[in-house]
Design a protein around this nucleic acid. Sequence first.
RNA 1: GGGUCGGUGCCCGAGCGGCUAAAGGGGAUGGACUGUAAAUCCAUUGGCUAGCGCCUACGGUGGUUCGAAUCCACCCCGGCCCA
Length: 399
Amino acid sequence: MDIAQQMQILKRGTVEVFREEELAQRLADAAKTGRPLRAKLGMDPTAPDIHLGHTVVLRKLRQFQDLGHKAVLIIGDYTARIGDPTGQNTTRPMLSPEKIQENAKTYFEQAGRILDMSPDKVEVRFNSEWLADLRLADIIKLTASMTVARMLERDTFEIRYKKGDPIGIHEFLYPLMQGYDSVAIQSDVELGGTDQTFNNLVGRDLQRLAGQPAQIVITMPILIGLDGKEKMSKSKGNYIGVTDKPSDMFGKTMSIPDHLMENYFTLLTDLPAERIRELTDPSKTHPKEAKILLGKLIVQQFYGRQAAQQAAEEFEKVFAQSQLPDEMPEVAVSAAPIAAAKLLLQCGLAATGGEAKRAVLQGGVRINNEKITDPNQEITPHSGMVVQVGKRKFARLKV
RNA sequence: GGGUCGGUGCCCGAGCGGCUAAAGGGGAUGGACUGUAAAUCCAUUGGCUAGCGCCUACGGUGGUUCGAAUCCACCCCGGCCCA
């Protein structure tokens, strides 16, 4: 494949490439010398479960692998051990080495659903390997390469500074440490979300100072979550996890606002741009049809074509025709008659008694498809009885 | 170190001795309408209780008071200014 074609693949969906000419040059060099590029991606071992937001970058990394290059995954174990409070106000707890190992394991298992994990395609490094041994003198040298003014350029710092939110001095060290990772592993390319732009560019500076060619930095958009507003994140609950069941993946996709479809098609599928334009033009494609396709394409990547088809059919059945799903959690209960609200509690369909009662009073509860209106109504459970709360919570009883 | 302002429910934020489980907004959930879209409308939103009611809650600990998120003392945490 010629360089122009490779560039086209690699540029798709990116926000920026610092710098394109350098990337083209380095791809050419790699082709000439047969030395694969080292494409770096840092991973924060505090959040093990990965969702589609992470896969945007992982998919890009996969493209590098498919073009013959090597993915270098950095586990920020050292960084995590210190405890990064960047998450605005929540001070993160320090993680034990065991916990980090555990998180890293989960991460690889899940990242492996996107990446090619064969040994010659992936290199895994813990950054404690080089960061733990730095002495104060080294650290001071590192900090001397940066100014406060430049640090404050970074938007998260700038915003917090203006807002009067606290910024810990050590937070200034994170970009430097991350940049130093690039020096340590001699990366050719670093991938990251746009929120990582600053950190990744620091890597360029530090590499130059160390006499290495500066890495190319590729930034990817931050995937918006299901709410259509905030970035996809586990803590906001607006995410699709890579381990979600096919039916959930599909259902969640169907619930995204229409205007998000273009974004999702671009970042989460390989469809060509002109096809995406067709799909997101309501005069050419009904939005629901487009979204069904999107849902299928997403599920398919993780579970295959058949599961995707099934998920779509199931969805149609349950929501368009409001029939019962094929599969639902089974809950064992005793056969004794019980108040409806209590039953919900036992089934795990409500977290508290008040919530259960409310759901009933608001007409959100059905038992065997019959609406229940009195929270105190006595129900005599029997096997196979179906309890439903709202449109999407079901349980089948087992006595 | 000094001065000053602040810490309220999932989040933001009002309240500044009783009428306060605590205004308002956001979010979330349920309902109507739909395409589990958007927009809109209605309802709910600390826990326990069939209910009377009880318990927990306004940074922490003590105190004043018949009564405190509200007053006082000390402490912890943060912003800003000065050094």
